[in-house]
């Protein structure tokens, strides 16, 4: 650790490149905390949005018409409005009317934190796209396969869980991949409502240390790393789901 810090102090002395996050304990602490927060926000919103997609796509095909309309309305709303406006809407409009609770030192704090609002907004935003993505996958499952589940006594939910969804997943993985990569990048919008994620804290650091260029490069590399990790995980998953005998 000390070696790394030494290297970056030297780098600053010899070239003027100032990576405070590698030698200044205060900047390092706040930046890596922000990195973890970004990871957390990305991972949780990926999981939540996929869950929304799975449940939404099932409800969309429901025989209960109002339920299907509700899902369609949700999808239309979140697909056709800017995610930043959605974020503001949740934080300022809904945040203003949610109750506050006293914290341990007696200060009134909102029941729903900035982080939670960002998570909700991002999950609903990406979830709307996931509903459509899963629906396209479900439509690709042959009618005759579904008939076979019916003949074996499966309920609609049972067939969805054990046959339709697993097959739909395989069809829509590329589209899902795209949407989730976008979602990871969109977590930066949480900046707008003051969530101390990576972009937000990088901004604080470069305001203090005047190292915009250096921090920009760090940011870009870390986002590339995060997206690559996601793509790699999805790839592993895709391989695990391969159906032998059905081409690639």
């Amino acid at each position: 650790m000390e070696l790394i810090a030494e290297f970056f102090r030297d780098l600053r002395a010899t070239t003027g490149l100032n990576f405070t996050i590698f030698y200044d304990p205060f900047d390092a602490a706040r930046f890596w905390r922000a990195f973890l927060l970004t990871c957390e926000l990305a991972a949780l919103s990926v999981l939540l949005s996929v869950a929304i997609g799975i449940v939404g796509a099932f409800a969309q095909g429901s025989r209960i018409r109002p339920l299907a309309w509700l899902v369609n309305g949700y999808v239309a709303f979140f697909r056709n409005t800017p995610p930043l406006v959605q974020m503001y809407f949740f934080f300022f409009a809904l945040g203003a009317i949610t109750p506050t609770v006293p914290d341990d030192i007696g200060m009134e704090v909102p029941l729903v934190s900035n982080f939670a609002w960002a998570l909700v907004a991002l999950s609903l935003f990406a979830g709307a796209f996931n509903v459509e993505i899963f629906r396209s996958g479900i439509e690709a499952v042959p009618r005759s396969t579904i008939e076979a589940t019916e003949a074996l006594g499966y309920s609609r939910l049972g067939a969805y869980r054990h046959v339709v969804l697993p097959l739909a997943f395989r069809v829509c993985l590329p589209a899902l991949n795209n949407n989730l990569v976008n979602l990871v990048k969109t977590t930066t919008l949480a900046y707008a409502i003051g969530v101390p994620e990576m972009l937000y804290v990088a901004n604080q650091i470069w305001s203090d240390a005047l190292n915009v260029t250096e921090m920009m490069n760090v940011l870009l590399l870390l986002y590339i790393a995060l997206v690559s990790l996601l793509v790699w995980l999805m790839h592993c998953w895709e391989r695990a789901m391969r159906m032998p005998g059905y081409g690639a």
Binding site: P142, E147, A148, Y154
Partner: peptide, 28 residues
């Protein structure tokens, strides 16, 4: 009532054994 179709309609993501086992485990 068991039914067998012209196009077999097996579940392609499951092995032969799993195809046979699925419904009794999931449904029954």
């Amino acid at each position: 009532v068991g039914m067998v179709f012209q196009q077999y309609n097996l579940f392609p993501h499951r092995t032969a054994l799993q195809n046979v086992m699925m419904a009794p485990v999931h449904v029954l």
